[in-house]
Design a protein around this nucleic acid. Structure first.
Lengths: 356, 356
DNA sequence: CTGAAAGCGCTTACAG
DNA sequence: CTGAAAGCGCTTACAG
């Protein structure tokens, strides 16, 4: 309703130059803060700029310099606390280095991830942090590298890609949690994840396309195997993608002949769903079933009992990814690396000690 | 470590044109999908583009067209579930309309908000959605309008600004919740918010610079007044900004002579902190203290008891803000409006009925 | 239907 | 220290 609301042509260096009675180049130098200009002329230009409310056009600046000052981030799901914390860490570190962040959501869908990557490269981001939905379909990630755009993988690693990755110490974390459960006397343990189950049960751990989940499962299975427990793969259950699916997964698990006494939840969303499933089945934690959950999500500390969790230090992960990417953008010579952020087990009240 | 990683000049329409043996203009027309080109030449150009792995430079495109296809969003705190849900709604609707979203975090700090706005305008976003940290310091928001950039306020309204705002029905929500508590027999109720307290207690509701909080407090106070309860302002407590501060606020509240029997939490973060404070004070919900919390945060449904909440339908709020902004960007003639998304009270188990 | 030229708002050598 | 000119990679009239 305001007459001034209609976009008038914005004021440019040329306008400021004219007002200050200097050349475009000179005005540009003071406005852009480069080159050398006498104090007197600087003042003149600044005054005119202020009077005209000049705002630099970053787009034009980027076109000329070839740098956008933007880091693109493709995450699985912003609503997931894991990613919102990560984004926070990424943004804080990026800002400190003078970069801004543009976020895209893949919803863990490969197609959405591909178009997000395309889009971001089209916007000429200076670098990209991506959480690959699948570690076995990576042509679009190769394209990033061929386009000459620095890339850092987040949460998941893809060795074939020869690119930096920041992840947790997923295998170790799973090993620690699993050993802890066994130490508490548990003998039948299940691992539950939201990964899409590709038709029925899991026959081959190597087929899990998300490296973080795969490594956790490997850790889980290795400990069960080393403890001489039978058929560990049987207790790895995927497909807990929503409440209904999770209810199904848990119901099947607890109604088996030898039902598990402890559950390991692959992330805090799965953990919350499991918690609700158990609640609706009338099963108590930890007396009926014990559980451990990845991520120190806020809900885990206010339940009864509070949930024993694996603290992933996600903020640090995000920060590290950002710093690494900035180093790449600035062409710091660095070997390609997988950076692991160590986790720790935080014991609270959701694991029972089983007699014997 | 890959030799291909060094950014070579990217391929442009000129390159494609040369390869396809046509003019730049013609190549640009098929690559940009505008104008008219014969089928045969279209094929030629597409083939060359594919062979060269052409990717349009969106920056250059934006420079020419004057549109970036980006919506800028400035939120208070991405880590807050309220905002991450909102961002999701904003993004989904934006994408549907062909826009992308760039998110900036103000941390509810005015300075950070100002520089975020500057930055986004510099990037020539097509429109802006902002959650103003303060409703009483709005020069930078006026600047947005003067720059001719469409703006929609989110969660908080500023009547003086004459600009669209999408908010909840904050006053009604507070009225409903407060009446409910009174209906359950409560006579001493407190409202707790994370708003910065400007030196001591609240003397004047009108001074609360966040309109959402102000309107909720107004609703709260009006119901207490209409019920003939004494000194309602006394029970409005600000400054619950972190766990420690909240512990202090709650401790003071419950150790008073006539301590409140019910608490209204201004958002889910405050609610969670209050929950923990009460827990650490050894007070039970609802037998010692009742509580109601704004936002259907995930933790509220898994506590014992589950928390009675005000469902704010934040996703819809985000969606609506996005749609409104897009309409503005596309110059749809529309009166300036405040769009209120209605809330509803979801009764769970955190409110006791008091005898009498 | 196709092409040559100008322009978007900056920065970057190159002269002076 | 200051200026005139070219260029970034597109799109947009304007001719033909």
């Amino acid at each position: 309703m305001e007459d001034s609301a209609h976009s008038k042509r914005s004021v440019t260096v040329a306008d400021v130059a004219k007002a200050a009675k200097v050349s475009k180049a000179t005005a540009a130098r003071v406005l852009g803060g480069y080159g050398v200009v006498s104090a007197k002329i600087t003042d003149q230009v600044m005054a005119s700029a202020a009077a005209l409310e000049y705002r630099p056009n970053e787009l034009a600046r980027s076109m000329s310099t070839g740098r956008s000052g933007i880091i693109g981030v493709v995450v699985g799901d912003i609503e997931n606390a894991f990613f919102s914390l990560a984004v926070r860490g990424i943004s804080d570190a990026a800002r400190l280095a003078g970069f801004n962040v543009i976020i895209a959501n893949s919803g863990e869908q490969l197609d959405a991830e591909k178009s997000a990557v395309d889009l971001l490269i089209g916007k000429r981001v200076d670098g990209l942090i991506v959480t690959p939905a699948r570690c076995d379909n990576i042509d679009h990630l190769r394209d990033i590298r061929r386009a000459g755009v620095p890339l850092v993988l987040f949460d998941r690693a893809i060795p074939e890609l020869d690119v930096d990755a920041v992840t947790g110490d997923d295998q170790d974390a799973a090993v620690t949690a699993t050993r802890y459960l066994i130490g508490q006397g548990h003998r039948r343990l299940a691992y539950v994840s939201a990964m899409d189950a590709e038709g029925g049960g899991l026959t081959d751990v190597g087929r899990i396309s998300n490296s973080a989940v795969r490594e956790r499962v490997e850790g889980f299975v290795s400990v069960l195997t080393e403890a001489g427990l039978p058929n560990p793969l049987h207790y790895v259950r995927l497909g807990a993608t929503d409440q209904q699916q999770t209810d199904g997964v848990i119901k099947r698990l607890v109604s088996e002949g030898s039902s598990p006494t402890a559950l390991l939840a692959s992330d805090s969303l799965v953990g919350l769903r499991i918690f609700k499933s158990l609640q609706s089945l009338g099963l108590s934690i930890p007396s009926d079933v014990s559980m451990i959950c990845f991520l120190d999500a806020d809900w885990t500390s206010v339940t009864v009992p509070p949930i024993t969790i694996i603290d992933q230090r996600v903020y640090e992960m995000g920060k590290l990814a950002s710093e690494r990417l900035v180093a790449r953008i600035e062409r710091t010579p660095l070997a390609v690396e997988r950076l692991r952020v160590s986790t720790r087990l935080v014991v609270r009240g959701s694991v029972a000690t089983i007699g014997r």
